[in-house]
Amino acid sequence: MEGWPDFRLAAANLTIGRGGQALASGLSFVLERGQALLVTGPNGAGKSTLLRTLAGLLSAIEGRISVTGTGLESGTPAGLCAHYLGHADGLKGALTVQENLQFWAAMLGGRGPQPDIAGALACVGLSHVADFPAGYLSAGQKRRIALARLLVAERPLWLLDEPATALDAASQDRLAAMMQTHRARGGVIIAATHAPLGLEDARELRLSERAGALA
């Protein structure tokens, strides 16, 4: 399995916030191949805002985010090499699981190889629902399909916002294994979480409530 031998994400002196209101400032970190960062902190501290800023869905109030690595042109936005797993699963209930994943593979996969949808579904233990409309699935199953999306398109940076929500114990183990494999291939993970995710030797970025209080 090829991976990303020299992927690197750097955030320098980042100030994040919503609508011009700063939530946290002076965030600087560098993540290189295989490293993981846990973003922790109380509700409203800016965990989701940080992930959305890194994905390019929100603009940073100050500071810069850069990604480098083989095959990445300089100045590539981090969002283009990132998978974002937010609170919503991004599934269309009227389409089958297979169709949903095929669509995201085509949208997010770029010029990568043919997506292994069956393999991704097997990896989250849901091979048997491939032809079900996604609307029939339970919350936990939808979450697992959203996790399978991370596998059908090759992207080095995973931005996971509470990835373990609604997952049962077995699925949490599968998630831990998925993240382990991704890191072994040189991928980088940033996860906002309240629950332990089984990420070994991950660094921790603690956003404080004080910083979270709106001025």
């Binding site: 959305r52 994905a55 390019g56 869905l57 969002g79 283009l80 990132a82 998978h83 974002y84 937010g86 609170h87 919503a88 699963d89 991004g90 599934l91 269309k92 995201w104 949208m107 997010l108 770029g110």
Partner: peptide
Amino acid sequence: MEDGSLDLLRLSEI
């Protein structure tokens, strides 16, 4: 926008 697809679409190359 409601089901999160719009966020993901914005992460594509298009």
